[in-house]
Amino acid sequence: MNDLKFILTSDVKESFKLNIGQGSKIRVLREADLRKLLDVPTAIEIIERTYKEYGLNESHTLSNPPALYGGKGGLNDARYKVKGATLFNENVTGIRLISDLPVGLGFESYHLLLVYDDKSAAPLGLLDETWLHRFRTALTGVVACKYLAKSNSKIVALLGAGEIAKQLFPALEANFNFQEIRVVARRYENAKRFCKIIGERITAEMKALENAKVAVKDADIIITLTLADKPVVGPGLLSSGSFLCSMGETEEVEFEVLSEIDRFIVDEFEYATSLGDISQWIKSGSTTRDKVKKKVNGHIGQIIGGLIPGRQNDTERIFAIIQGMAICDLALANYALRKASEEGVGEIISIFNRV
């Protein structure tokens, strides 16, 4: 794919306009449609391009605040979240509507994404974003590893074996020559099941472990994707040259780890203060917003945009909090909608039957 902005023929442009640009008709894309429209290499290229433009500060604006939360607030109650973004270069705005219900050790999740045309304010598409969100989240982690992990990384410690973790492979292995993938889940049986499934996709040895400390020891890349009720990575565990990528919504990394690393990277600081490690560090009184912000060396967009360096040597310990940004969801969704228009994928529905 040479041009990810998707150059449409005049006939397709007219069809795109008639089908989903007049406000009365919207294209609906479900999971099966999105899996057909998006492949890993194209998605990674879109994410890198979007992050680069974000780093150069020329592409977007996020909703203000970056996220809104709703629900009763109880431990077992449904949780709701709204995130939005605008991509200037593509003249689209997206609103993500997310609901999660705690079920057992995980969540029953429903993710919707509405995409709007900024020139007309008309809705263009409605996407079932549940799978796309997992796909995008995993690939943003892959991109972070590409720029911040050692190129000769051999051992991966994966803490968390849920649906997002499954989307890491084989994409992550494509950038490295791994020897071993160590997997830890809340239940050992889940880690073994994950290894069996993913082991059929990749060449590295898959190893299910019960102890996070054992998994992290001497690992080159550590990825945390958990719903842990307490941190899974503490001080004294990171080896020289390791890359730690925290991607969950809870406190996965103890605050004291910050004093042991050489560089600290985020994707979007404001959002990180509302959910995940930084949020919990601030709530617990371990630090303040201003103090932790001073420790941040930059964001992933600045690295991909070439404004600050990525990994500079094989001994740096780098810690990144990569939780995903709505601009990446929107860029992938807009690409999928345009390709769907060309290929006739999805369902066209009428909502606004105005007189």
Rank of each mutant, 00 (worst) to 15 (best):
residue 237 L to C: 07
residue 78 A to H: 07
residue 309 P to F: 11
residue 166 K to G: 02
residue 273 T to A: 06
residue 249 E to L: 15
residue 267 D to I: 05
residue 183 V to A: 12
residue 207 K to I: 04
residue 156 V to M: 09
residue 283 K to H: 04
residue 19 N to W: 01
residue 270 E to S: 09
residue 342 E to N: 13
residue 215 A to F: 04
residue 258 L to I: 05
residue 227 L to F: 10
residue 144 A to K: 08
residue 225 L to E: 09
residue 26 I to K: 06
residue 271 Y to L: 14
residue 73 G to T: 05
residue 212 A to E: 02
residue 177 N to I: 06
residue 271 Y to F: 10
residue 351 I to C: 10
residue 197 I to H: 09
residue 118 D to W: 00
residue 177 N to Y: 05
residue 258 L to A: 04
residue 165 A to K: 02
residue 314 D to C: 11
residue 110 Y to M: 07
residue 309 P to W: 08
residue 215 A to C: 06
residue 89 N to F: 03
residue 330 L to M: 10
residue 150 K to V: 08
residue 268 E to G: 00
residue 59 S to G: 13
residue 208 A to D: 06
residue 69 Y to V: 04
residue 89 N to S: 14
residue 247 M to W: 03
residue 87 L to R: 14
residue 146 K to L: 09
residue 214 V to I: 14
residue 168 L to P: 09
residue 106 G to V: 08
residue 78 A to F: 08
residue 298 G to P: 04
residue 260 E to P: 05
residue 341 S to E: 13
residue 203 T to F: 01
residue 189 E to Q: 15
residue 67 A to W: 00
residue 19 N to G: 09
residue 175 N to S: 14
residue 155 I to C: 08
residue 255 F to M: 04
residue 212 A to G: 00
residue 261 I to Y: 01
residue 295 K to Y: 04
residue 151 S to N: 15
residue 187 R to Y: 10
residue 328 C to I: 10
residue 77 D to I: 08
residue 130 T to Q: 01
residue 74 G to R: 02
residue 21 G to T: 10
residue 6 F to E: 15
residue 75 L to V: 14
residue 128 D to E: 15
residue 353 N to T: 00
residue 291 K to N: 15
residue 4 L to C: 07
residue 78 A to Y: 08
residue 198 I to C: 06
residue 318 I to K: 10
residue 118 D to Y: 00
residue 334 N to E: 14
residue 65 P to L: 09
residue 162 G to T: 12
residue 102 P to Y: 03
residue 145 C to M: 02
residue 305 G to H: 05
residue 216 V to N: 06
residue 34 L to F: 05
residue 348 I to H: 03
residue 92 V to D: 04
residue 224 T to V: 08
residue 2 N to L: 15
residue 270 E to H: 12
residue 197 I to T: 15
residue 237 L to W: 14
residue 45 E to W: 01
residue 257 V to E: 08
residue 62 L to W: 09
residue 173 E to R: 03
residue 181 I to C: 12
residue 281 W to Q: 11
residue 295 K to Q: 14
residue 249 E to I: 14
residue 240 S to V: 13
